[in-house]
Structure formats: C-alpha cells, structure tokens
Write a protein that binds this DNA or RNA. Structure first.
Lengths: 228, 228
DNA sequence: TCTTCGTAAAATATCTACATTTTTAAAAAA
DNA sequence: TTTTTTAAAAATGTAGATATTTTACGAAGA
C-alpha cells in the first residue's frame, strides 16, 4: 500500500496556513485577504474557506461575517491567561498520570528524559534548538500520556496550539545560553525524580513553575515589538 | 442599531447541523451525504463544507479524504473518558475559582442556585426539564466563571460540546422523579456551602462526584440501544 | 478651512453551478 | 465463488455571478 492517500486541498492548506500563522508570517490581527491567499497557496476560495473555518474553531483565526478573516489578535493579557491555563491543566494531568501511570509510562519518561539531556550542539545553534524543542515536546508528551484520558490530552493539544504562537516568539528570540540549558536540565531531572517517587503535589507544583518561566521573557519581547 | 448583521450561510448551517447532531437527528457514525444535506438545509456545498470543517475541529464530525464526512462515532469507552475528563477539568476550575473568586462571584452563585432550586413543574414535564437544564447550566457556569481564565473556560466549553451528545441521551431517557430532583437539590446546596466556605478540596471532590453520577445511567441507555 | 454627509466606483466576500476526479455499486466474466 | 469491467453516485475544486463592504471623491454645511 504505497498509494499515499490523496489529501484534499482544504486539509493541506490548513496545515500550511496554521504553520504560517504560528511562525508569524501573518502578524496578529492582520487581515487575511482571499485574493492574497489564493495567490500564495495557488488554489480557489473553496478549500481556503474550509481551512479558515477549522482555524476559526481553533481560535487562531477570527471570522467577521461579510468581512472575511483575520489572524486572531495577540496581547500580553492573553499571553498570561493562556500560559496560566496551560500550566494548570498540565498540572492536573500530571497528578492523574502519577495516580494512573504504569511501568511502561515510567520507562518512557526515563527514555525521553535521557535523549533530551543528551542534546548536543553539533551542527549550529539553529539545528540544536530545533532538536532540543522536539525532544522537549516528546518529554512532556510522555509525562502527560500517563493520565490515560484521550479527552484531557485533546484539551491539552488545543491549548498547545494556541500557546504555540507565543512560544515561537520565545524560541526565536532566545539564544540559549548553556547555563539556561543546564538549568532546564536540572529542572527536568528533579521533575523526573518527583514523578517516579509518585509525589503528586510536588510534581504538580514543579510543572506549574516550569511551564510559567517563559512568560516574563515573552512579555518583554512583546513589549519591545509593540504587541502589548 | 437593529441591523441584525447578516450571518453567512456557513455559520448558520453550522449552528443547525451541530444542534441536529447533538440531538441525534443523525445517529453516531452515520454518513453525512452532501446531496442529503444540500436538500435538508437548502444550500450549496460551499457553506456546508465550511460548517463541516468546523465540526471536524470540534470532533463532532470526522472527515475521510475523498469519502466525505461522518458523524463522529460514540462508544461506552468514550462516554467514560469524556465524563472523566470533564469532571476533572471542572474540579480544577472550581479549585481555582475558590482561590480567585470575589464577592460578585459568590453573589452570582447564590442567585443562580436560588433560581435553580425554585424550578417548579408548572407547564408539563417537557417544559420543566428544559427550564431546569438551562438553569442548571447557568449554575455551573456561574461557579466556573470564578476561575477567571478565558482559556480554561474555553477548554471546558470544548468538552461540554462533546459531552452534550451523551448528556442528551440522559435528558431524553430520564423522567425526573421528584426524589431524584430533591437529591440534586441537596447536592447543590452542599456544594454552595463548600464553595462559600472556600473549602477547595471538599468542593472539588463534590463536583467530581456530582458530574459523574449520570454515567452509569447513560451506559445503560447505550447498552439497551446497542451503542456499546 | 475643516468636517460631515452622500454617492459612485472599486475591492472584497460569499455562494451556486458545473466540470473533474474518485469512490462505490452492480453486472459480467473467469 | 472470485475477479474484472462498467456504470452510477459522490466528493472535490474552480470559475463566475451576486451581494456586501470599503474607499474615493466631491458637495453642503459649520
């Protein structure tokens, strides 16, 4: 079965559009002109409106009837709320994971923590950051998977999508100092220890702090760029 | 300004389609044939595909490329996971609301609890159930609003939408006995007491139990109807 | 002069109809 | 039966028609 099932255009333009919005190709609040999008992605209005409708449901785009679509606005207030919400939800999920996770869960966390700790600066900081980010996501994914609830994880995904635009600001701006990286490494090690000790309150508190650390940095970036 | 801003067809058919799916007009797993939908809602494929795309993002509909759309399947496994996820999320939100809610929050809860307790059987059980449900939603809405986080409430909304199909089975099947209603009333009163006493652990535990009670009943209904 | 209002033209969003491609079904052949 | 062929049904995409909003411009009034 090598017949790569043909995706319809709506789905593929959805993926591209989402990536472009997250990466800031279209600034927050910008009007998404049909004619421009048609040209850029080389397709008709039908598939475009499908993709935009999905993004509206995910709150990355807002639609105004008869006036088209705009990239959802960004603000410091939203930055704070979204990180707060995400951190608390992930804290809850971690508590459940500690209560419900089995041996395979523990093993997977250890595995992901190991590969994350071993990220080395081999081919330039650009590439390294990319690898680090992917493994960092995998690490947190392994932790949260232990809660065993498809729908809680789905709610988490929804918040991750929305947080991603802000997080991208952070990743772009932050040049990782090796001390910052070392600090993260220690946080992760302590977190793993709390998880394996099944110390739910401690692990939950640590997750919350861990996830909130980027907020002040992003707030600064936003103020500097006049997105406040 | 009485110019009721003209909604585009995509949005209005989205609302109708969503209501119809929740109410079981289209059974779980059923194919949503374009030709049928076009006829039923009297419009073209464009707006329909917009609406369906949004419902896909909300997980009420699944799309299979080149094979159209289907109502998302239902199962006892999902029933349990979705209620579990919702209950835990609402528990978290209640804890935050207790930590963050102000006087107006307390007042609003008391107000909504009062109107909910006063629901009387005046114009038939059909009408009564409708009023009771609306006020019940308002009651829980008032409680959760206290968390102050737009994004946590948004995540809650997402789960509510998905839970609604199962909840509808319950509302349709359950003929409320006055003793069941009285029991609920007592649960609500105890909950309000715990909230005003700012007893977060107790309130959270109560919410969790309160929200999980319909599960065994719905499970029975589903087994009886062969949706297991 | 500056503002407000109204009108017309341009730009834009929205929707339907039809053409194209793909899937499903039915019938025929092995 | 099982496979192949063929026809019908369905999904998808684009182009163009229609309706709405925005912009441009000038006249009237302050």
């Amino acid at each position: 079965m090598e017949h790569s099932a043909r995706q319809n255009l709506g789905v593929s333009v959805y993926v591209r559009l989402k990536r472009d919005i997250i990466r800031g190709v279209y600034p927050a609040g910008e009007k998404l002109l049909m004619s421009r999008l048609k040209e850029r992605y080389d397709l008709g209005t039908g598939p475009l409106r499908e993709a935009l409708s999905q993004l509206v449901a995910e709150h990355l785009v807002v639609a105004i009837s008869q006036r088209g679509y705009r990239v959802a606005p960004m603000s410091v207030a939203e930055l704070e709320d979204i990180y707060d919400a995400r951190a608390h939800l992930e804290g809850l999920i971690v508590e459940l994971a500690i209560a419900r996770g089995d041996d395979a869960w523990e093993a997977d966390i250890l595995a992901k923590a190991h590969t994350l700790a071993k990220v080395m600066d081999v081919s330039g900081p650009e590439e390294m950051l990319d690898v680090w980010d992917r493994r960092h996501q995998a690490f947190h994914g392994a932790i949260t998977a232990g809660c065993g609830s498809r729908h809680l994880l789905q709610a988490r995904e929804g918040l991750l999508d929305q947080v991603e635009r802000y997080r991208h600001l952070w990743l772009c701006e932050t040049v990782f100092s090796s001390e910052a990286l070392e600090h993260k490494r220690q946080e992760h090690a302590a977190l793993v220890e709390a998880l394996l000790a099944r110390d739910a309150p401690r692990a939950s508190r640590m997750i919350l702090e861990h996830l909130m650390t980027p907020v002040p940095i992003i707030r600064e970036v936003m103020k500097r760029r006049g997105l406040g």
